[in-house]
Simulated scan of single mutants.
Amino acid sequence: MQIADLDILQSQAQYPSITITLPTHRTFPEKEKDPVRVKNLIREAEDRLLQEYEARDIQDIMQRLWDLADSIDHNHNLEGMMIVANRDVAKVYKVPTRLEEKVAVQDDFLVRDLLLAQSRIQSYWVLTLAENPTRLFHADNDQLQEVQDYGFPFVNEEPGTRMTLDTRYGTKPDSERDEHLRIFFRNIDAGLKQALDLEDLPVVLLGVDKNLGFFKEVAQNYDKVLTVIEGNHDLATADNTALKFAELVWPKVQEVMHEQRHNDVAQAIDAAVSSNTFFTDLNDIWVATLDGRGARLFVEEGYSFSAKVSEDGRSIAVVDEPEAYRNREIVHDAVNRIIEHVLQTSGEVVFVEPGRLGDNRKLFLTLRY
């Protein structure tokens, strides 16, 4: 999934646009049920379309959906799946976040689910500071890939023990070894800089205290360090390296990033409240985002509501029983529509855990003016 996909899906909106989302599974036996679940949801979408169209009128779009279902390789499922289709677009997205099971038929796609998945993908570098060798990994969440570039993996080929160092009169073996280590870690830092120049991501460091200390002393890129994990990781073998480090690193990264997100949200809300530049009322938010006033929209994960839009498009009324209406008469996911308004006017959307917005709020919009 690329950021450009969000723009494509928004630009291709038309009625009917079908969005199907569901949780999926990586392992057996749970993943065996995923193909059946997909087909059941496609049938549900067909039933909804048949409430408004003759079967011959939806034949093309239904064929697109069935072709998509047949093309899915369920052996490589992640935590969630999103299927979108209309007369011009047909795509399947596998995402590393769990999605709710639902079917939507409206005049736009539910881009919120892709946006949420995108916001939960954390990319970073993992640098293991060891002499035999120092490795660099590129990580997306718990998936690590070793980098074989920029000089990595680095092996310290300088004298490594007191007995092999120059012990002539006046030399200090410990000092000589320390200087060799400084040179070694400067070279590693130079290699890391090349990686950072290509992709500017936070860095997780692993290593024993001494190596961490030397690296911190000489590194020019230490401000990129997200967190440090102490310990001896020299003995990881080629077969289990990525898995071993993922198990060590990903829980710590989640913890640090969760805390950072929480602090960022709290600070942004406090600033908006202090300056009285925010809305929490649904109609106020609807109008402000239509007018391009929305700077940053905070959305509680999982929150949605159906709404009927006024004839002039400037107000909404919450609908408690959307099944009582025809598809075109209401917006089944008004939160998704608000998100689209924000994105179309270069605003930012941030998803937060339930309860983070306080005072039973589900949406919080900071204003440009």
Rank of each mutant, 00 (worst) to 15 (best):
F152S: 06
R135L: 11
L110Y: 11
N77M: 12
F109E: 03
D107W: 10
D67G: 06
D107Q: 10
H74G: 04
G151F: 07
D140A: 15
D142Y: 10
Q122M: 12
I72W: 11
K91C: 02
A45I: 01
R120D: 09
Q118R: 15
N77P: 00
P96R: 11
D47H: 07
E100F: 05
I58Q: 01
T134C: 15
V36Y: 13
E79R: 12
L115Y: 07
S71I: 02
R98W: 11
D57M: 03
N77C: 12
A90H: 03
A69Q: 11
M62F: 01
D108T: 10
V89R: 06
V95E: 12
E131M: 07
E54A: 09
A117T: 09
V38F: 09
V155I: 12
V111C: 04
Q63L: 07
L129C: 08
I121M: 15
N86V: 06
V155F: 11
K102V: 03
N132A: 12
N86S: 01
G160C: 06
M82E: 13
V36F: 13
Q106V: 03
D149Y: 02
R87F: 00
V38W: 10
S123F: 00
E46S: 05
A55K: 13
D113N: 13
D140T: 14
R64G: 08
H138V: 06
I72D: 10
P159E: 13
L65G: 03
E54Y: 06
D47K: 14
P159G: 08
I58L: 01
L68A: 05
K94A: 09
E54Q: 15
Q145W: 03
E79W: 04
R48W: 06
R87N: 12
A55W: 00
L144A: 06
R120A: 13
E44Q: 15
I61D: 00
